[in-house]
């Protein structure tokens, strides 16, 4: 093993993506094993590393660095994080590859860092290969109808983002790593003046953007739909539906969840009266917590759900609305 290193950028995005850093580390270690490089992690703040370690699942890295110990950079200041990360990358002569997640924030950050340094960006790779001293990235292009194999033509460092859907969970927990703070020397300020931040009403929220999605299926009657929308407004959730619900006119086509609709990754997915066909389950593969409410305890959705409630939607949804009105679900 030489001094060459691979850096994995770890960010749980304020706790929203708790599993993703661990899956990214597993991928980084796989590439490091193939190349003989050291696999190190880099976080924007020591608190991010602390949150990851507090999750109870440690990670084994050859080094873990933080961009700075001052207050954490919010999402809006991504330009600042990018500037600092670029400065760190530029100051690391042994760095070969910087790996980031292909999330919205990760992709934005990767593009800014690569552009700042004038380095190649292998974005949204579904696979990485090390072949003949070349890094080859496989990317899905043209709406998934083809895969493009790309390779950098210049010397490292290279910037890579990985499609989060292909990342696998690490095999086993590992000891915690110690965090070392890197002195970046870059102190950029965002150029844009943020005037105001607001949240759109739940009714306008798309199923791809929402953290909570209430999805209706064939088990929901049309007259119960108003209460589902009321519950969605109280929880600031988006309303989606299965293919059957779309065919039945309960939800619009652009709100269909499943293989032939939207592939979503909310934090909480509540399936109301949905049996859970294979194609529907494909669309919620990345959902973190799934709740199934169905009268049929043997419905396939129950096997995917973390919490299964055998109840009639027409009975439970009004109860949820009543409970949610004064509820302590203040910040969702």
């Amino acid at each position: 093993m030489d001094d060459a290193a691979l850096w994995v950028y770890l960010d749980d995005e304020g706790g929203r993506q708790a599993d993703l850093p661990l899956r990214l580390i597993a991928e980084g270690q796989r590439l490091a094993q193939a190349t003989g490089w050291r696999c190190c992690g880099i976080v924007r703040h020591p608190a991010v590393a602390a949150r990851l370690q507090a999750g109870g699942r440690g990670f084994e890295l050859d080094g873990l660095f933080a961009l700075g110990a001052d207050p954490e950079c919010p999402d809006a200041a991504i330009a600042v994080v990018a500037e600092r990360l670029a400065a760190c990358v530029a100051a690391a002569p042994d760095l070969r590859v910087l790996v980031l997640p292909g999330t919205t924030v990760g992709a934005d950050l990767a593009a800014r860092v690569a552009a700042r340094l004038g380095r190649p960006l292998l974005s949204q790779c579904v696979d990485l290969e090390w072949s003949g001293q070349r890094l080859i990235g496989r990317r899905a292009v043209c709406s998934g109808r083809a895969h493009q194999m790309v390779s950098p033509t210049v010397d490292p460092p290279w910037v890579v983002t990985l499609d989060p859907q292909v990342l696998e969970a690490p095999a086993a927990p590992a000891p915690h790593a110690r965090v070392a703070t890197l002195a970046t020397g870059a102190d950029a300020a965002p150029m844009t003046a943020v005037a105001r931040v607001w949240r759109i009403p739940a009714a306008e929220l798309g199923v791809l953007d929402a953290q909570v999605v209430l999805s209706v299926g064939r088990g929901v009657a049309a007259d119960a739909l108003a209460q589902v929308h009321e519950l969605a407004a109280l929880l600031h959730a988006a309303v989606g539906g299965s293919r059957e619900a779309v065919f039945g006119g309960l939800v619009q086509r652009e709100r269909q969840v499943g293989a032939s609709g939207k592939w979503i990754a909310p934090r909480v997915y509540v399936a109301l009266g949905i049996s859970g066909s294979t194609y529907h389950l494909m669309g919620i593969r990345e959902a973190r917590h799934v709740v199934a409410i169905n009268t049929d305890p043997t419905a396939p959705i129950m096997a995917r759900a973390e919490v299964g409630i055998v109840a009639d939607v027409a009975t439970l949804v009004p109860a949820l609305v009543q409970a949610a009105r004064p509820a302590a679900v203040t910040e969702i």
Binding site: A303, A305, V307, I309, V310, T315, Q322, A323, A328
Partner: peptide
């Protein structure tokens, strides 16, 4: 299907289950 994959099944009056579910959602968020 392995037992560990089976969901936590909740039962009881709708208002109790509703409160439990909202608490769990708030916890997840």
């Amino acid at each position: 299907v392995a037992e560990e994959a089976a969901p936590v099944a909740w039962d009881g009056p709708p208002d109790v289950v509703a409160r439990q579910l909202l608490e769990r959602i708030a916890q997840w968020l």
